[in-house]
Design a protein around this nucleic acid. Structure first.
Length: 297
DNA sequence: CTGGGTGCTACTGGGTACGG
DNA sequence: CCGTACCCAGTAGCACCCAG
């Protein structure tokens, strides 16, 4: 008789899926990523193609696939020898992990972000409820200012009104002011302070080095943080884009996180950040940025 | 057009494992 | 043992479909 109480141990793939979504590719169709990855691998092994012959999109997808394989020691073998059902199951477990981590992060950032945007030793006016989002976004002077694209002037009443009423809907590639250190954007030097805001650092620490590591030098953590749990030693491009997307959503008034939602446009925003950080022409700046993050976290 | 059925996905509350 | 942070099961809520 099986006396085991409690639930069955969850598949470690779910655990890897959590890290995959947070640091490698947040909005991933794992099923097709894996299918295409396997196909390309076989084609390369047969000498029918090589990595250089893949187009930009295919090569990028293949890179992501290889990073996924790197997360779990036996994964590649399981995929190569597995039945279609097994492959389907594996993809499902990765997807499950990645979306459950995403929703956990969405949930906890939703309330703590209110603390972070409250002025030190001051109050937020009007106040915002920690678990209610309806009056965030462009309905609130603070969240509105943070979300307002850098090419628009939040101080302008007409602009403010148009953003609030939805006449003006910023797209995912118009960058909100909160991405910049101290919210200062310099059109002459667009890299200056980009992706270096305190808000981002707080959110990054919250997710990767534990919630209590955000405000105190002496973390009260009683468990290993996510970064340590997954052997993460340096800042990854995907993780920056992920955190920026989470913060952007937490500031918005949208109640439901959806990849396709036209107002929030999270997936497009995420991809725009990744695209910038992977742009070969920007690599010098990006290297500096990642080094800055490694020092700050 | 509309009411109910269906499938899907994200949110929530709570459980539990882990490190001290 | 305790407090914290990861993780999950269950369900609310949405979009879509289709018969009436």
């Amino acid at each position: 008789m099986n006396l085991q109480v409690g639930r069955a141990k969850t598949d470690p793939l779910v655990h890897h899926g959590r890290h995959f979504g947070r640091t490698i590719q947040a909005f991933c169709r794992v099923q097709s990523l894996v299918q295409n990855g396997l196909t390309v691998t076989i084609q390369i092994e047969l000498g029918r193609t090589s990595e250089d012959q893949l187009n930009i999109g295919e090569r990028r997808e293949y890179e992501i696939y290889k990073q996924l394989l790197g997360l779990s020691p036996m994964l590649e073998e399981r995929l190569c020898t597995g039945s279609p059902q097994e492959i389907y199951y594996i993809s499902e477990m990765i997807t499950k992990g990645s979306s459950s981590a995403r929703s956990d992060d969405t949930k906890s950032l939703k309330s703590v972000i209110v603390d972070w945007i409250t002025p030190p030793n001051g109050i937020l006016s009007p106040p915002l409820q920690r678990h209610v989002k309806t009056d965030r976004g462009f309905y609130h002077p603070t969240t509105g200012g943070l979300l307002c694209p850098v090419n628009l002037d939040w101080g302008n009443t007409k602009i403010r009104e148009e953003l609030r009423s939805g006449v003006l809907v910023p797209s995912g590639d118009q960058w909100p002011r909160f991405l910049y250190q101290s919210c200062e954007y310099n059109p002459e030097d667009p890299w200056n302070g980009l992706l270096q805001s305190g808000l981002l650092v707080s959110a990054y620490k919250h997710v990767f080095t534990s919630p209590s590591s955000v405000d105190s030098r002496e973390p009260r953590a009683t468990r290993s943080c996510n970064a340590r749990l997954h052997g993460m030693t340096s800042t990854m491009i995907g993780s920056l884009a992920y955190i920026a997307t989470q913060v952007r959503f937490a500031l918005s008034s949208s109640p439901v996180f959806s990849r396709t939602d036209l107002v929030t446009d999270s997936e497009y925003f995420y991809n725009s950040v990744v695209e910038l950080l992977e742009d070969p022409e920007e690599q010098a700046e990006v290297r500096q940025l990642l080094a800055w993050w490694d020092r700050s976290v």
